[in-house]
Nucleic acid binder design. Sequence first.
RNA 1: GGGCGAUUAGCUCAGUUGGCUAGAGCGCUUCCCUUACAAGGAAGAUGUCGCAGGUUCGAGUCCUGCAUCGCCCACCA
Length: 1058
Amino acid sequence: MDMPTVYDPTAVEKKAYQRWLEHKSFHADPNDNQAAKGPFAIVIPPPNVTGALHMGHALNNTIQDILIRWRNMQGYNSMWMPGTDHAGIATQTVVEKRVLAEEGKRRTDFERDEFVEKIVAWKDEYEKRITNQLQAMGCSCDWDRQRFTMDDVCAKAVREAFFQLFKDGLIYRGKRLVNWDPATRTALADDEVEMQDVDGHFWYMNYPLTEPVDFEGKTLTHVTVATTRPETMLGDTAVAINPKDPRAAVLAGKSVKLPIVERIIPIVADDYVVLPDADSDDAKAQFATGFLKVTPAHDPNDWEIGLRHDLGIINVMAPDGTISNEFGWKDQEENIHEGATFLGMDRYEAREAIVCWFRDHNLLEEVKPYTHTVGHSYRSHVAIEPYLSDQWYVKVTDDRLAGAALRAMKNEQRSNSDGCVWKDGDSFEGQNKDWEGGLKFYPDRYAKTFQTWHENIRDWCISRQLWWGHRIPVWRRPVALETPPDNLAEMVEVLAVWQNEGRVAMQYRGEFVELAKIEKEDLDLTAFFVCVKDPQGEDKKIVKELEHWGLEQDPDVLDTWFSSGLWPLSTMGWPDDNDVLNTWNPSSVLCTAREIITLWVSRMVMFNLYFRDCLPFNDVFIHAMIQDGEGQKMSKSLGNGVDPLDIIHSHGADAMRFTLASMTTQTQDVRMPVDVVCPFTDEAFVPKMTSTKAGHRVMKPLQNCPSDKEKKFATSYGVMSGEVTPSDELPLARNTSSKFDIGRNFANKLWNASRFAMTNLEGAESKDISIEDLAWEDRWILSRLALTAKEVNDQLEEYKFSEPINTLYKFFWNDLCDWYLEIVKPRMRDDDKKHISQKVLAYILDVTLRLFHPFTPFITESIFEQLNALYPDRDIKGLPANAQADNLIDANWPTDMSSLIDAKYDSDMELVQSVVRTIRDIRAHYKVAPREPIMVSIKSTQEQCDILSEQASLISHLTNLSDFSAAMDVSKPDNAAVKVIGQMDIYVHDVVNVEEEKKRLTKQKEEIEKFIANAEKKLSNENFVSRAKPEVVQRERDNLEDLKQQLDSVNKNLTDLG
RNA sequence: GGGCGAUUAGCUCAGUUGGCUAGAGCGCUUCCCUUACAAGGAAGAUGUCGCAGGUUCGAGUCCUGCAUCGCCCACCA
């Protein structure tokens, strides 16, 4: 046996992981007929290749690994699909930054392919790093199946999905306002927009009515609009008023003459407009005039209003944010009048100029200061410009997508909200698909997020103006041709053939093409879209032809979530029909954080239902978000992430997993203060207290972070004064947190308890024994173990993680180590009987290791290996048997032990424990050295005395007694200390100090009296007696009776003291 | 603005359908290097359960309001 006294994770972890890889323990075969319980699968939430993983990922993956290992041991054919996500814009951006920093070049200085190569290099680097991190954590992913959202397999699924949706009319091209960064001239994703509070103004501007209107006896000549963005007025195409506004009756349908450009625009009635109300809490109502200028090309809400009222769309800006009439300002043929003055001005220049113009023309009613939040580019930090452009959409509002997702929800988790458009007609009760009502969220509350999202869903814009991602497989003309190509007729005919063959799908002006009906000469190629099914493979020649005809592939790429949404399909080889897909899709559970319920979970559900007519997973477990010490979300962009490798370095992987599991309660946030920044490197000499047989303290090097106790000790020896020279190769500091001490302490305890067992098993002969041979304490610990195993299993079934780890921890530390191992020590020295306690110990250790394995795989695997080597046959006749296994990861989950649970052992043991604790307490109180034997006698009921007498030697051993007796008629020796526990009087002889004893007893007396008063108050309350549950009342009565007896006893003992 | 959550010991957190004389780990106090473990053992101290009301025989737990903090979604009148 080779077990150092201090557990060293580094030595164990690498070896164990290597062993698992060699044994192919992570690999699952879809045709595995050994797995009796059927398939179990998890697809990993693919981490972005933008950077290394942080503690949030560590938590996420620890949870998944626990589930996979547990189910695998239970006999499921379990498979954990690993992989990474290309994370479109985020990755492109980090690479752009790196290239700018390292080479001083911008993306646009490169060809597209050239730059994408640089991103691929980055991706390779981080994919490798992420894989290393996951392996260091112990993740039992099926690495043979590792995928990347842009690899060939996934790309095929993406193209197939796009083609099908396109063909089915669920993808369309439409206009949308994107988040435009005028400085870098790119569109940004919503999450790349930073909200900043800006001190701005409300400008109140008058727009003259084309003809005066009488209202309540007054003649109105103009309306006043309030805006924070006067410069966009050049693109106004309407003024809106709320239909409930009294003025709407006379004004709606009238028109105004827009100043400067003199455009005649209508006044429309729209609910969106806020009614003015000076007393309102709503800032908008306070500032509102009731009239809203409508600029569909420059404001998302105005865009919506424009759609509702069929308004014109006038874009008055160039991509660089200057006023321009070259990008959709189409009314210039009517003369833009004074608008020309502002052409070429920057948007802020134009703002001032236009305000001046209004002031000069007496049309500026008022200016009020106003603070509001404005989106800014996280890259250039300039204000985002909502900019009109053509984009691709998925029509998720279709019932086949969002409606299906809603129907998939577990019925009891779905609330009946009125706003749900899909509830019309048939109710959810009428289930006709087997996946309906199958999707369940843990904890429940997240079902609501999912439901609300789908009930209010808007079509999903899937195109991104990026270089990094899946190219959109659509060919079209970017710019209209001067004259139609002369071979157009030929093209249309050939396309018709391909369409019939199912190789292409076409849309023209938003409609499906019936080629025969198209007037070929009029075909506008810019509105003609050809989607190719497999452009990289089978349909290469089609692409060639299309390009020959002057069509080009859409330069945009797909939103990252499009490929992520296909993850459970693409990783398993969809669209090819295959065993992997048929075995593990639907997968069993998805583990993720709540922030991506809408972005990711929703899309996976919709896609899997649509493409495969089944759920991607049945359960969704939403775990906590890890925050730093200030309560901020841990994220890469904030730079507050802690690398799991740092924790593994300082505490070990099992310790990290242990702590993470114990933090996983139902709460939605957990804080992880980085309260120790460990200044030590691998070469550093950190003192470690340890003891030798000679009783001297020595210091030895330790690679880990010191505990607080060690630091205290080391400081007192002057070692921590910072004279340590850090190594050049290693980082100066590693972030870690004393939160993980509990895990490390646990690992060390498990290591040493096992070491104790091994010491006693080394060279032991394994004889056959049966349950009848077992001692009382053996039955007790087996009962405890059986109960623990049952609870752990039940808790895991409900996706509880802190509860099972705590249950196990308590069993292991409090029952097994604190009591059982101490009890069993003398038996290990008894040559006649030690083979029994050896075998029981081996059995218990075996089961304990199996139960801990999903949580702390490395250390348990290592100990299991040593246990196998020393003592392979651990079966006891009459006890549930567990199959031998070479590796714990492949071993079976403990067989049901419920038959061993017996509350009598527990209650008897509790009695023994209370006696032992009391004796120790008195010993400590009277400062009797632990080595000095003492005498104890106990007066109690016959029943209790019988139990105690049976365990006399055990009690004596645990408290170092020279003599012990328990009987009904024991009287108190004169100089004995006494403690009353329930019906027992415990006398510890020859230690008494009368004054001290009086103090102790008086204190106890006061306590009891307090409780009695409490109980009596309750019981004298008529209402309590009559209304509380009878068993509660009875319990209170029994309790009072006990207390009174105790009080009598205490009083008597006090009197005896004189 | 809409939604979700948190507030319990000095710190980080448990506390399941109301029955609580409110728990754990760390830290703190006292003693102990006893041959598994000082990353340990034995014993001990520590709480107006954010505030204010309400329901109830009974509230840390349920309801209402308030305060503070956090997250998600939406939003440049």
